[in-house]
Every structure is written in structure tokens, then in C-alpha cells.
């Protein structure tokens, strides 16, 4: 997969969010497992980037955005998250 076809994965988080740390960890692990070369991963602090968060439709944390689409507004189970990422790879290839 070329760099231009990387899947953009954004996890919107906040310091007060008890599940965000776990979400970051699981997402980081899955990105490695599925091939870091496939993803462009970014963790976004909603407090520091509130306009961007609201424009993206993020109303709570953690929220997952894949290729500009808000795909999850809760902490998904590991397998669900893996499926989401795998599907993204499938759609982009």
C-alpha cells in the first residue's frame, strides 16, 4: 500500500475520559497488528481542538473517526475495532 492510500484514523480523547487511555492502547496495538504502514493514526485532544471535534460531529469521548467518517462514539470491543480497521483496509485496497 502506498503512502497516499493510508487510512486516516483519528481517536478523539480527553484527559478526563476514563476509557480514552484504554482506547488509545487498544487502537495502537491493533494498528501495529494490522500493519502500521496501512494507517495514519492521530490522537486528538478535544479540549485543544474543540472546533475540529465539533465539525467532525464528536459529542463525547472516546470517538473514532476513520477517513473523516465518525464510526464510533463509544469504546468498541477490541474485536469490533479490529473489524472496523480491517474493513477500512478492504475498502481502500
Amino acid at each position: 500500500m502506498t503512502d497516499a492510500k493510508k487510512i486516516r484514523v483519528e481517536l478523539f480523547t480527553s484527559n478526563l475520559c476514563s476509557r480514552c487511555k484504554q482506547a488509545k492502547q487498544v487502537l495502537s496495538e491493533l494498528v501495529v497488528e494490522l500493519g502500521e504502514q496501512n494507517f495514519e493514526l492521530e490522537f486528538v485532544d478535544v479540549v485543544k481542538h474543540i472546533d475540529r471535534s465539533v465539525e467532525q460531529g464528536v459529542l463525547s469521548t472516546p470517538a473514532l473517526v476513520i477517513d473523516k467518517h465518525l464510526v464510533s462514539t463509544t469504546l468498541p470491543r477490541r474485536q469490533e475495532l479490529k473489524t472496523l480497521l480491517e474493513d477500512s483496509i478492504g475498502q481502500s485496497s
Binding site: 484514523v9 494498528v31 502500521e36 494507517f39 495514519e40 492521530e42 490522537f43 485543544k48
Partner: peptide, 11 residues
């Protein structure tokens, strides 16, 4: 200190 960029990038 809002101007500091705190986004983490990887991948």
C-alpha cells in the same frame, strides 16, 4: 498555553 500543539501522530 492553548497554542501548544498536543496532537500525537504515529503510523
Amino acid at each position: 498555553d492553548m497554542s501548544s500543539d498536543d496532537t500525537d501522530k504515529s503510523g
